[in-house]
Design a protein around this nucleic acid. Structure first.
Lengths: 352, 352
DNA sequence: GCTTGACGCGGACACGTGTCCGCGGTCGCG
DNA sequence: CGCGACCGCGGACACGTGTCCGCGTCAAGC
């Protein structure tokens, strides 16, 4: 083995210098080809392109970015990867960004570890950071302040009420108001709220919509609704819906409508109600939220709310892409997305 | 609020040089603190740490990597972000990697665009590339060859039969054999295969397991099974299961057991069967695959196969982390994960 | 007051790339 | 054959960081 080259007979190409040597051109010439600069013979360009395809060489992105080229990386903070609507937003956003040449750096954002994640994003000089989901308010606000201080663009999808945050979010109040309006039209006056008990932080929160719908018809929130969320640890899965429904069935006076926080909770409740011999919607009406595919597969199909995810993500992506290069604006961008009520066969006239 | 430090009115900190100036130390001293080198007064270290927290400065990762520090980035190629088991694997893998200090660069890998994605990963000098899902065989093999040529580690999760590929994958043949054995024990001899018709590329494929289970009892595959997959465009969703079941119900001789490719297809079929007035499992038995949460929420609960995702991901992550720094080995690593049959109430004795 | 050691300073180089610039080789055209 | 245009060459610098090294400073111990 010759010690002149460090044990690389087939010349592992690690830089444009290596690559240029391999092609038989000057490094600067190769660089000019790679960057599409004029003044090169087509034959030379073709020679480089072919060698590029043959060797699979890819110039070091870190060196390029160091030299001032944009990183074309977007950091995405996820609450988790277990919530289907969140994952659908992620998928759609990633697709749009990818089509525009941006890579997505995805991190789940466990409470408390946010600082580290954001620092990592900043260290990699991402061009923007997107938050998808629901986070601890103070923590996100602190992170957003850090990002802004460093001049990095941000956008929050799905969480309202954050100070100084650019936001695109579903108008959940409108969604719940539509659900409640639908149920009120059917004559319902007593409601089991399944998993809805979170203090509203903005006028776009679910509870706000529920209250508004009731009050617009002169009904009292406390008299009409009941929540048993405190009896179980807060979750969002099927079992939680089942557990809550079970509790409600043990009450002396059963509400005529069960209003689920999401489709999973509603389906869990449906299972419980039907196991108890109740007929939906004849005995009890039931609603979900999010309009997942599974809603069509229950018996009966579920009345729910569609998030218009495509609109949300398109709005978000458009805004980010439009503001990428520009200096940050002091006034936050806030946009609400209108939901759409999807009426299934799980809701019917209130049993008198 | 307290503008005690007059030296930072408009100083945007963009480098350790800026930062050192801000702290009032030499750049080299700051660098030594950041890299934990000895020979520094505790007071100095503390001074830097505090300024770091105050300013939110993060050193340029690209420059660090350029200087030889590891990138600590893992590229993950996803078939899509719509398949729940795939997303669950992604989530688990991301969690493990993150705990070990690695960032995940996630890209979905649309057929044909793989070359671009891998080149991007290589350009960013990721330390390994993981494929999750099912891809076009020739394409993945070509990408893996590229990665190997560049000395980059790779691992394929969930796709068998790729030449030269390090692989961790569920033994789907064993899973299907377990399902078929269960149904055969219940007396079933005629099977509707829903969405299973893909030519087996390895001995771990579903059809291989189905054949093996039948032949081990002296039964003929073609005589016992029937597939109508060719009548619809291949999909994996509820509706596809519904459509296929509908077709089977139109046949003169109805199979006694419906074997779904996954839980979605099984649930879609369940809906169709029940809508047609059939009782499951008294009239027809039905099975799924993947053991998603929803399987417990159907009526009846679904007999299905659990993927042991935690084991899969742990195995994958351990192997990757163990082989990160080391030179590539010529002999591919191949590991199968054993599935687990989960018997629900959707399967029962064959109706005679 | 002197010695000594601990500690911070600042210059230097390297990493791989983009870009500028002056030089020289080659080819086409008259 | 001669001239100019074209085009590739190779040196140089910069980007932000890690690291080495020699030097200056300061305080503690005698």
């Amino acid at each position: 083995m010759s010690s002149s080259r460090p044990s690389t007979p087939s010349s592992v190409i690690r830089s444009t210098a290596d690559f240029a040597r391999h092609v038989g051109l000057a490094r600067t010439t190769v660089s000019r080809v790679l960057n599409g600069q004029p003044g090169l013979k087509p034959k030379t360009i073709e020679r480089v392109q072919r060698a590029l395809a043959e060797t699979g060489f890819a110039p070091n992105a870190h060196a390029m970015h160091l030299k001032g080229k944009r990183t074309s990386m977007i950091g995405i903070c996820m609450e988790d990867l277990a919530t289907p609507p969140g994952v659908r937003k992620l998928a759609a956003l990633q697709r749009v960004l990818r089509a525009r040449g941006f890579a997505s750096l995805i991190e789940v954002f466990p409470p408390g570890a946010g600082r580290e994640v954001i620092r990592h994003f900043l260290s990699l000089r991402v061009e923007a950071v997107v938050f998808i989901g629901h986070f601890v308010q103070e923590e996100v606000e602190a992170r957003i302040a850090e990002l802004t201080a460093q001049g990095t663009l941000h956008l929050v999808i799905d969480q309202f009420g954050l100070r100084g945050a650019n936001t695109v979010s579903l108008d959940r109040a409108a969604g719940m108001a539509a659900v409640m309006g639908h149920l009120l039209d059917l004559g319902h006056r007593s409601f089991a709220l399944l998993g809805q008990s979170k203090a509203p932080v903005s006028r776009y929160d679910r509870l706000t919509g529920i209250r508004a719908a009731l009050e617009s018809r002169g009904l009292d929130f406390d008299a009409c609704t009941r929540s048993l969320d405190h009896l179980h640890e807060r979750r969002n899965d099927f079992q939680y819906g089942w557990d809550l429904a079970k509790r409600f069935l043990a009450l002396p006076a059963r509400p005529t409508a069960f209003v689920g926080y999401n489709d999973e909770i509603a389906i869990g409740a449906l299972r419980c109600l039907q196991d108890a011999g109740l007929r939906v919607p004849r005995d009890v009406s039931l609603t979900g939220f999010n309009h997942q595919d599974i809603c069509l597969m229950t018996e009966p199909t579920l009345t729910t709310v569609d998030q218009n995810i495509e609109t949300t993500v398109t709005t978000a992506a458009d805004w980010i892409l439009a503001h990428l290069g520009q200096p940050l604006r002091p006034k936050p961008f806030v946009r609400t997305i209108e939901p759409r009520l999807v009426v299934g066969r799980s809701t019917g006239p209130a049993k008198v």
